[in-house]
C-alpha cells in the first residue's frame, strides 16, 4: 500500500461535514459542565451542607473513572432509568426516543463538570479574600460581589486551565463514536474504510483537530492579552 497525498485533501473536504457535530458536542459539554463546575465549586468553597459533600463525591468519582466509562454507564444506565420511571409513573416515555448524540451530551457534560469544578475552584481560590471584603465594605451583597468582583478575576486566573479543559473535551469528544455518533474521528473512519485509505483519512482528521485546537489557543491568547492589561506589574 502506497501513500496517496492527494487523498488527504479529498478526505479533508469530506470530513468537514462532521466538524459541526464535534464542535457541538464540545460546546454543549463545556457549557453545561461549566455551570455544573461553578455550582459544585461554590458549594465546596462555601461548605454548603449536603451539597458540598455531594459535590466532592461527584468530583472524585468522575475524575477517578475514564470518560469512556462515563459514556458507557450513561448509555446503558440511562435507558433503564428512563424506562423504569416511565413504567412506574405511566409517563409514556421511551428510552428509544433519546437521540444517540444525547447520550454524548449528557455523559460528557458530567465528565467536563467534574474537571471544570476543579478549574473554577482553583480560580476562585486565587482571588484574594480582600476583594470580597472590599466589595462588602462598600455595601455590595454577596451575589453582587461574586458576580462583579470575584468571578471576573477568578475567570482570568483560571483561563489557562480552562482552555486546557476545552481542548481536552474537544479531543475527548471522539469517544462519541462508541455510541455511533458520527463525529470527526468517526467520519474519518468511514471515509477511510470506504476508500481503503486509512492513514490519509486520519492525517486529514488530525489536521482538522490541530486547526481547531490552534483556534482555541488563539482565542485564549486574545483574552489573556486583555487581562494582562491589569495583571501586569505583578503585585496587585
Amino acid at each position: 500500500m502506497k501513500l496517496d497525498p492527494s487523498f488527504i485533501w479529498t478526505a479533508f473536504l469530506q470530513l468537514w461535514s462532521a466538524v459541526p457535530t464535534t464542535l457541538l458536542i464540545t460546546l454543549v459539554s463545556v457549557s453545561v459542565g461549566f455551570v455544573i463546575g461553578v455550582i459544585t465549586a461554590l458549594a465546596r468553597i462555601y461548605r454548603i451542607p449536603v451539597l458540598s459533600q455531594l459535590s466532592s463525591g461527584y468530583v472524585t468519582f468522575i475524575r477517578g473513572t475514564p470518560m469512556l466509562t462515563h459514556l458507557l454507564l450513561i448509555y446503558f444506565g440511562l435507558p433503564m432509568l428512563v424506562d423504569g420511571l416511565s413504567a412506574q409513573f405511566d409517563l409514556g416515555w421511551n428510552s428509544a426516543k433519546i437521540p444517540m448524540i444525547g447520550f454524548a451530551y449528557i455523559s460528557f457534560s458530567i465528565t467536563a463538570g467534574a474537571y471544570l469544578s476543579e478549574v473554577v475552584r482553583s480560580g476562585l481560590l486565587a482571588v484574594d479574600r480582600g476583594q470580597m471584603e472590599a466589595a462588602w465594605s462598600i455595601g455590595m451583597t454577596t451575589p453582587q460581589a461574586l458576580r462583579r468582583i470575584v468571578f471576573p478575576q477568578a475567570l482570568a486566573a483560571s483561563l489557562p486551565n480552562l482552555s486546557n479543559s476545552v481542548i481536552g473535551m474537544l479531543h475527548g469528544s471522539t469517544l462519541a463514536f462508541t455510541v455511533s455518533v458520527v463525529d470527526l474521528n468517526a467520519k474519518a473512519q468511514i471515509v477511510a474504510s470506504t476508500n481503503w485509505k486509512f492513514f490519509e483519512s486520519y492525517v486529514a482528521a488530525a489536521l482538522i483537530f490541530w486547526g481547531l485546537t490552534i483556534l482555541i489557543e488563539r482565542f485564549t491568547g486574545l483574552i489573556e492579552r486583555r487581562i494582562r492589561v491589569y495583571s501586569k506589574g505583578g503585585v496587585a
Binding site: 484574594d128 480582600g130 476583594q131 471584603e133 472590599a134 466589595a135 462588602w136 465594605s137 462598600i138 455595601g139 455590595m140 453582587q144 462583579r148 468582583i149 471576573p152 478575576q153 482570568a156 487581562i227 491589569y230 495583571s231 496587585a236
Partner: peptide, 29 residues
C-alpha cells in the same frame, strides 16, 4: 455596611477595575 466604609491596610482595590471604576463601583451597584 452601607452606612460605613472601610479603608484597608492592603488597599484591596478591585484589581480588574481602573482607579475610576473602583471609585464608582459602589455608586453604580
Amino acid at each position: 455596611r452601607q452606612r460605613s466604609a472601610m479603608v484597608f491596610q492592603q488597599y484591596n482595590l478591585f484589581s480588574h477595575k481602573t482607579a475610576l471604576e473602583n471609585v464608582i463601583e459602589g455608586l453604580i451597584v
